Amino acid sequence: MLLSKTLAHAFTIALPAWVDDELADVPTVLPSREDRMALVHRLAARNFREGNGGPFAAIVVDSDTGQVVSVGVNVVLSTGISSGHAEVTALGLAQARTGSWDLGAGGARRELVVNWRPCAQCYGATLWSGVRTLVVAGSGPELEEITGFDEGPVRDDWAEQFEARGIAVVTDVLRAEALDVYRDYAAHVAATGATVYNARTD
């Protein structure tokens, strides 16, 4: 058999159907960063209960107007694709909507809002996405301690590296609420045996 007949030629990272239902009462404009992060927490809290992946969500927003460009949730478990993190999903859908790999093209000022500092994979995805601002709920070790996730080898000067590339970093937006979602996730894992997916160590 020829190799071309055996290869996969595409894969899809898409929002799960329940997201539309969850967004039914959400306006298209979220004026404050607290409003934006509250939506991220709401999506993250539902995502793991729906079995899509971890307790992670992200949105891309126009920094000046508050217009929501895209939303994303972690879909690793539902797709079987390890790169299906919330940030990658939100950034990719924003790029598909705008028709550009550069979310800062034409002077656009867009920001990625996510419920913790990006993992090693999403760190790079954010750096190269064209967003002008990264807004996170927190950045300490609590995420890994509470959930058991391995976020990978992220540099200690991660925020400075973003700033050096023209990406402003805003931290500690609704931080306590993020930790509440992670605690709920940990309780869910303990009760259901849900998969906490990490890189293989053997």
Score class of each variant (00 low, 15 high):
residue 94 A to I: 04
residue 102 D to N: 15
residue 165 R to S: 08
residue 117 R to M: 14
residue 6 T to W: 07
residue 90 A to V: 02
residue 99 G to Q: 10
residue 83 S to L: 11
residue 143 L to W: 11
residue 201 T to P: 00
residue 105 A to F: 10
residue 138 G to T: 13
residue 132 R to C: 01
residue 87 E to W: 12
residue 199 A to D: 10
residue 79 T to E: 03
residue 162 F to R: 04
residue 76 V to K: 07
residue 105 A to G: 01
residue 97 R to P: 01
residue 55 P to Q: 09
residue 194 A to K: 11
residue 194 A to G: 04
residue 87 E to C: 08
residue 143 L to S: 03
residue 174 L to W: 03
residue 92 G to Y: 13
residue 152 G to K: 12
residue 89 T to P: 00
residue 68 V to L: 11
residue 48 F to Q: 00
residue 188 H to T: 05
residue 178 A to W: 06
residue 80 G to H: 12
residue 105 A to S: 07
residue 136 V to L: 11
residue 188 H to P: 08
residue 104 G to C: 04
residue 193 G to A: 11
residue 72 G to Q: 10
residue 96 A to W: 01
residue 155 R to W: 14
residue 88 V to I: 14
residue 82 S to Q: 10
residue 12 T to W: 02
residue 125 A to N: 12
residue 51 G to W: 08
residue 12 T to K: 11
residue 99 G to S: 10
residue 38 A to M: 10
residue 131 V to E: 07
residue 66 G to C: 08
residue 30 L to H: 06
residue 181 V to K: 06
residue 178 A to I: 06
residue 200 R to T: 08
residue 32 S to L: 08
residue 130 G to P: 08
residue 120 A to F: 15
residue 139 S to M: 10
residue 19 V to I: 15
residue 159 A to Y: 05
residue 28 T to A: 15
residue 172 D to H: 12
residue 59 I to V: 13
residue 92 G to D: 11
residue 21 D to Q: 14
residue 47 N to F: 08
residue 121 Q to Y: 07
residue 44 A to K: 04
residue 9 H to A: 05
residue 57 A to I: 06
residue 157 D to K: 15
residue 157 D to I: 13
residue 34 E to C: 02
residue 63 S to W: 13
residue 28 T to V: 15
residue 7 L to S: 10
residue 180 D to K: 14
residue 121 Q to T: 13
residue 14 A to T: 13
residue 165 R to C: 06
residue 53 G to S: 14
residue 65 T to H: 13
residue 135 V to P: 00
residue 133 T to E: 12
residue 132 R to W: 02
residue 54 G to S: 07
residue 52 N to Y: 02
residue 126 T to C: 12
residue 52 N to K: 06
residue 78 S to Y: 05
residue 135 V to W: 07
residue 55 P to F: 11
residue 163 E to M: 13
residue 133 T to M: 09
residue 93 L to Q: 13
residue 161 Q to E: 13
residue 196 V to F: 00
residue 141 P to S: 07
residue 67 Q to K: 15
residue 116 W to R: 11
residue 202 D to W: 15
residue 56 F to Q: 02
residue 120 A to W: 09
residue 168 A to P: 01
residue 39 L to S: 08
residue 191 A to F: 03
residue 164 A to T: 09
residue 9 H to N: 12
residue 189 V to R: 11
residue 75 V to H: 02
residue 20 D to F: 04
residue 52 N to M: 11
residue 196 V to D: 00
residue 87 E to V: 14
residue 187 A to K: 13
residue 89 T to L: 10
residue 171 T to C: 10
residue 24 A to E: 12
residue 2 L to Q: 15
residue 109 R to W: 02
residue 102 D to E: 06
residue 48 F to A: 04
residue 104 G to R: 07
residue 8 A to V: 08
residue 155 R to H: 15
residue 197 Y to P: 00
residue 58 A to W: 04
residue 39 L to D: 04
residue 107 G to A: 09
residue 112 L to M: 06
residue 122 C to I: 01
residue 163 E to N: 10
residue 89 T to H: 12
residue 69 V to N: 02
residue 70 S to M: 13
residue 117 R to I: 02
residue 3 L to A: 15
residue 53 G to Y: 10
residue 193 G to T: 12
